[in-house]
Design a protein around this nucleic acid. Structure first.
Length: 753
DNA sequence: AGCACGCCGACT
DNA sequence: GTCGGCGTGCTC
């Protein structure tokens, strides 16, 4: 008998293996150890193969690891659906659906660490004392020598990812290992922002006793009745729970989940990446106790592994987690909640490029479950589906306790520039408001979606900007601990010290322009020296526990003003925050991305909702150069319906999603011409197959024309149906196997940059 | 000439 | 992903 096996290798289709007569037949979903090339790997059995179509000389499986299904068969179905829809390999999707492969029972997240062997250290020393060496030195390539030097001073070794950052290819490390000059080992990783007990940290707000929220407002109660009725049908449906920020959606999730459990069905709750703060986690734990599993990105491989098996054994009734939890191995799912369904973190930005929200809907259909999509600012896709009657709609119009929305004020920065010069970062109204609020013992949050100190270094003589040598972007200036500053690439991590003179024309007139969060922090300290300021962005959050520590101090009132990127816009409740400032609402609006307005609207609405969540009245101040832009104007009025009406018009006119389906294809090459030629070739083959079902736009150089040293060409497929686009694309790619390594296919892309 | 690098195709 | 094969170019 022959079986099909999904192997954990990108792009490989299911492979056929022979099952020896004396071996048991692996069931669909069981793990099997199989030979693959010169290695052996663990794959997932998909079922018996059609013997007539199988070639005669098949290799045999080595071992069947599970007597029953390991991955539940319905999750195998789901994974295969995802593989097909997103044009990914079945093996790589199933890897996402399985617990991490090499996890010790109670292990931690691991990294590979390379260290020199005794022999390697001798060689390194010999290289160091270069001229004097009489020993015959081995011939080493540039890459290997760099690795050797990097490792020479560190007897304990360095993590592989770190060496990669320094531009040392994995291949060179492999060569050193094969020569016996270095060795690799696996080690616990220290980089774990959530490490420590997930239930510790900021607790729920003591000012908001649980009993207070548990009794539902009339608004919530009406919504709850509708949701329960839908759940009680026991069949598949999708509901948009459209509730303004602060309207108490989480409480509805909890009660609806209890209702599902009472009916003997299980519950899957998906949340955005950043949302699983200790506060939220403890809320769910308090409600469901032991029979809950919480999965977030900070779990170690070992913890993930343990939880997976707990769920698989049926010991868990509620799974709360980020996008990959959509593959959780639970049975009898009756309710799937996708909280903040519009959030970008549901989309995986590497293969398989699935959207957890959309996969949740497919899983709901498969399981006969109610799928609840919750948001204050639904994605255009979701609202469009609700409008067309494909989804139900349940609306929460009022905030709990009838709290007013924050008063929102727009500051036109053109006026500020006219009055106070072009270097203004904080407008006078914002500075005054900060001073006043903090004076009253309240707190402020300032948001700017741009890291770093300055966004560019410009030469005043030749007008050139300091660019990344590997990517087509300008370098961002970051200040370091000792006051020194470095110019850094946000895409490839390249960094250099800020030069004193222009690299092109040697003129010593370099100017730093544009500002990021670091500069904002400095500006507040300069203008309001008494205030206690802290910053939250990817740069300050490198250390584990850093986020929790800063947010904890902010919650405790030890910080007056918190500056940050959108990391601070989500998921946290700080009752004493009465002022939210948006430094530049225009970041993003200028981008050549059809979702720019939607993202801006969502962010501003969300941010304005941050202010005044306690008993105090809140205010939001939004600085912008385009006060008349509809996404800014309507976000200030918190008018989703008007925004939707405006935006959907634009999407229809331009034929962008949700009016059409979109597939983004990026092709990389060593030169732009190389990438463009390959892209044009692919497009020609696509159109040769099918020129009726979709339109092709491009190819054209990608907006980020060069990335990590490679040139990128891009084209789009637009069509009402996804299938013909995907089919034609997959077929055309099969004709050009040499492109396999250079192509990225993104079905339903969120970002097209 | 000998070797390392890096690209390319194969993997059932 | 990972391996081996192979063309190209560097260095002795």
């Amino acid at each position: 008998v022959n079986i099909l096996v999904a192997v954990p290798v990108p792009f490989l289709p299911p492979l056929t293996y022979r099952v020896p007569d004396d071996s048991p037949l692996p069931l669909r979903g069981a793990r099997v150890r199989v030979p693959l090339g010169t290695r052996t790997v663990v794959g997932c059995a998909l079922g018996t193969a059609d013997d007539a179509e199988s070639p005669a000389d098949l290799r045999a499986i080595i071992e069947t690891l599970d007597a029953e299904a390991f991955v539940p068969p319905h999750v195998v179905d789901l994974a295969l659906w995802v593989a097909e829809y997103y044009a990914a390999g079945p093996g790589e999707v199933l890897s996402a659906a399985m617990p991490p492969a090499r996890a010790s029972a109670r292990g931690f997240r691991t990294v590979e660490v390379v260290a020199l062997t005794a022999q390697g250290r001798d060689i390194a020393a010999a290289f160091e004392s270069a001229g004097g060496a009489t020993e015959p030195l081995p011939r080493l390539g540039k890459a290997q020598r760099e690795a050797l030097t990097a490792l020479a001073g560190v007897p304990t070794g360095l993590p592989v990812p770190l060496l990669k950052d320094r531009g040392i290819p994995a291949d060179a490390i492999q060569r050193l290992v094969r020569r016996g000059l270095a060795s690799k080992r696996r080690e616990r990783s220290e980089r774990d922002p959530f490490e420590g007990s997930p239930s510790r940290g900021i607790e729920g707000d003591p000012n908001e006793p649980r009993a207070d929220v548990r009794s539902l407002t009339p608004d919530q109660d009406a919504a709850m009745r509708q949701l329960k009725a839908l759940l009680d049908t026991g069949s598949f449906s999708v509901t948009l729970l459209h509730g303004v920020t602060g309207s108490g959606k989480t409480e509805l999730y909890l009660q609806l989940a209890s209702h599902a459990l009472a009916a003997g069905r299980r519950v899957l709750i998906l949340v955005p990446e950043i949302a699983l703060t200790p506060a939220v986690t403890s809320l769910f734990r308090a409600a469901f106790g032991e029979r809950i599993a919480i999965q977030h990105s900070g779990l170690s491989d070992g913890e993930r592994h343990d939880q997976w098996h707990r769920i698989r054994r049926g010991e868990v009734d509620v799974v709360v987690g980020t996008r990959s939890a959509v593959f959780a191995p639970i049975d009898r799912v009756g309710l799937i909640v996708v909280d903040e369904e519009h959030d970008g973190s549901y989309k995986q930005e590497e293969t398989p490029r699935y959207n957890g929200r959309d996969v949740a809907i497919v899983r709901g259909r498969q399981a006969g479950a109610l799928v609840v999509l919750g948001s204050a600012t639904p994605s255009l896709e979701t609202y469009h589906n609700a409008e067309r009657g494909r989804y139900q709609r349940v609306v929460l119009t009022r905030r709990i306790l009838d709290r007013p929305m924050a008063a929102t004020r727009i500051v036109n920065m053109r006026d500020e520039y006219a009055d106070a010069g072009p270097d203004v970062i904080l407008s006078r109204p914002l500075v005054e408001a900060m001073q006043q609020r903090v004076g009253l013992g309240e707190q402020a949050m300032l948001l700017l979606n741009r890291r770093g100190f300055a966004t560019a270094v410009v030469c005043r003589q030749c007008g050139g900007t300091l660019e990344c040598p590997n990517c087509s972007v300008s370098l961002t200036v970051h200040t370091r601990a000792h006051g020194a500053s470095r110019a850094q690439c946000h895409y490839c991590n390249y960094s250099m010290s800020v030069p004193k003179a222009c690299l092109d024309c040697a003129a010593p007139y370099l100017e730093q322009t544009g500002f990021g969060t670091e500069r904002v922090e400095e500006e507040i300290r300069r203008l309001l020296p008494g205030l206690r300021v802290a910053r939250v962005d990817r740069d300050t959050m490198q250390r584990k526990g850093a986020i929790q520590s800063v947010l904890g101090r902010f919650a405790a009132g030890e910080i007056d003003v918190l500056v940050g990127t959108q990391m601070i816009a989500k998921g946290h409740d700080f009752p004493r925050v009465t002022l939210v400032g948006v430094i530049s609402a225009d970041v993003g609006l200028g981008m050549a991305d059809f979702r720019a307005a939607e993202r801006t609207f969502q962010l501003l609405t969300q941010v304005a909702g941050r202010a005044g969540r306690g008993g105090l009245e809140g205010e939001a101040i939004i600085q912008t150069l385009f006060p008349e832009h509809y996404s800014i104007r309507l976000a200030c009025r918190q008018d989703y319906l008007a925004f939707y009406a405006e935006e959907i018009k634009y999407r229809r006119a331009m034929r962008y999603p949700p009016a059409v389906g979109l597939v983004n294809v990026v092709i990389r090459g060593r030169t732009l011409a190389d990438a463009m030629t390959a892209a044009a070739d692919l497009v020609a083959r696509l159109l040769a197959r099918d020129r009726a079902a979709f339109r092709v736009l491009g190819p054209a150089p990608a907006p980020l024309g060069r990335l990590r040293g490679e040139y990128r060409a891009q084209f789009f497929l637009k069509g009402v149906q996804r299938r013909p686009m995907r089919d034609a694309l997959v077929r055309a790619l099969e004709e050009m196997p040499e492109l396999r390594r250079r192509v990225t296919v993104d079905v339903d892309p969120l970002s097209v940059l």
